[in-house]
């Protein structure tokens, strides 16, 4: 397994270089450092010197791809692409356009993102499995038919609608929870309750349908028929046999998203004023702070690759037939 993981990590390097190259082209070629400086300094009394100084103070005055004036290896290393890529690989995100240390901001914002994402994942998983089991148990009945139709209806509604309705009903009409905001520590529970409910409801349509499909696939297999033939009740068959085997794709599907939980939810965090990494990314896009956007894109790619590796490992843990070589 060690060799397999090493190989996967080595495979990740060209992927990350590719991600870095694309973001570099987007943020340093399509949108030049001069554009960044102008956006940042404003338009009223900005001078050419101020623009040049801004570019210099951010280290963007180096040649982009090749330094013809340098000698030896410095032709490559004294370039913007090399320094930016090197810093990214060392997870040194540097400072944002406003001068804040991005690494420090990421550290501070991971907590609020996880405060919403973890309960949302756990409650969402439990709800989806529960609904899927119910539909599978009553398969080919009216409950199944209406349940699946209801799931499709839920899937068809934009998540923004759930957010607005959730805030309107639970925050404004019933006044159970604050409409938005966040406080650290245990007080956060009051603020994350609504986003978690919204997240669970918004995801139950697609989640339950997918899990139902996995369960149906299992209940039609021979070992289920054997179990029934042995005289086990439908409940026993479903919970002890079908669910256990259907959990393999469910768990591996969950494992892949675990690292990306750190990245938070763009829409949810923005609407509920949760100061997580999702709203950090949205704010950076809005204010055209490309240093942050690049860092978040890169971090997202790293976490996704980690998620995929963890998924492969989790296969070996939940399914003894799988061996990584």
């Amino acid at each position: 397994m060690f060799a397999y993981i090493t190989r996967r990590i080595l495979y990740a390097i060209p992927i990350l270089i590719g991600v870095n190259l694309i973001t570099f082209l987007l943020f340093f070629v399509v949108n030049t450092p001069r554009d960044m400086a102008v956006t940042h300094l404003g338009d009223k009394y900005t001078t050419e010197e101020a623009i040049e100084q801004w570019i210099k103070s951010h280290g963007y005055d180096k040649p982009r791809f090749f330094d013809a004036e340098a000698s030896g290896l410095k032709k490559i290393t004294n370039t913007l692409i090399f320094t930016q890529t090197k810093n990214m690989f060392l997870l040194q995100f540097g400072t944002s356009d406003t001068g804040r240390d991005i690494g420090q901001d990421v550290k501070e914002r991971m907590g609020p993102s996880l405060a919403v994402a973890i309960p949302a994942l756990l409650f969402g998983l439990a709800t989806n499995i529960f609904v899927a089991l119910l539909l599978t148990f009553f398969r080919r009945s009216y409950l199944d038919l209406y349940g699946v139709s209801f799931c499709v209806a839920l899937m068809s509604i934009s998540s923004l609608f759930y957010i607005i309705i959730g805030q309107f009903l639970l925050g404004k009409i019933f006044r159970w929870v604050p409409i938005s905001g966040y406080i650290g520590g245990w007080s956060a529970a009051k603020f994350v309750l609504l986003p978690v409910i919204v997240s669970v409801v918004a995801g139950v349509g697609s989640g339950a349908r997918w899990y139902r499909t996995l369960l149906l696939e299992e209940v039609n297999k021979d070992y289920i028929r054997t179990a029934r033939a042995k005289g086990l009740s439908s409940m026993q068959v479903l919970f002890k046999h079908a669910l256990k085997n259907a959990m393999i794709p469910i768990l591996t599907g969950v494992v892949v998203v675990i690292p990306t939980l750190f990245m938070g939810s763009l829409l949810l965090e923005s609407f509920f004023s949760i100061p997580g990494l999702g709203s950090y990314t949205i704010d950076a896009i809005r204010s055209q702070d490309f240093a942050i956007v690049r860092s978040m894109v890169y971090l997202g790619a790293v976490l996704y690759i980690v998620g995929l590796i963890l998924t492969d490992i989790s296969y070996t843990l939940v399914d003894p037939r799988v061996r990584l070589q």
Partner: peptide, 10 residues
Amino acid sequence: EKENIPRWSK
């Protein structure tokens, strides 16, 4: 408070 709707409701 980034969004109008919660800001207005509050």
